[in-house]
């Protein structure tokens, strides 16, 4: 059995995954199944969408909806353009992270 830590979507994407409690194998399988089965996922999503019933749930979804509809800042749009123009396979630096680390 491979010792590589895997996510529910396949290969490990990053060696710096925070060490949190390990997930049980059935959960990983069910998560993968959810991702591959649209109708089942929708059904479950609909059910869990109302984990907060009543006014509080509506408020939470309304507030979150406002965030979803907010325009994407120029900095992120610029980053996407930069990423798209980068050569495939060339690692792109993160300006925000660079600034953060230089502090």
């Amino acid at each position: 059995m491979s010792e590589e830590k895997k996510t529910s979507w396949g290969k490990a994407y990053d060696a710096n995954i925070p060490q949190e409690p390990k997930q049980a194998a059935p959960t990983i399988e069910s998560a993968a199944a959810t991702a591959n089965d649209g109708s089942d996922a929708d059904e479950r999503r609909g059910r869990h969408q109302h984990v907060l019933p009543g006014i509080l749930g509506k408020q939470l979804r309304a507030a979150y909806g406002e965030l979803l509809n907010a325009p994407v800042p120029d900095a992120i749009s610029d980053l996407i353009k930069k990423l798209e123009s980068a050569k495939p396979g060339t690692p792109v630096a993160n300006k925000a992270a660079d600034e953060e680390s230089s502090k």
Binding site: S8, W9, G10, K11, Y13, D14, T34, A93, K95, E100
Partner: peptide, 25 residues
Amino acid sequence: ADDLVQEALVKAWNHLDSFEVGTNL
């Protein structure tokens, strides 16, 4: 939050080959 999103986007972009197509992006 915007810094976090940018950090995550760069990581994702640089590791797109690690993502298994067909699963939950």
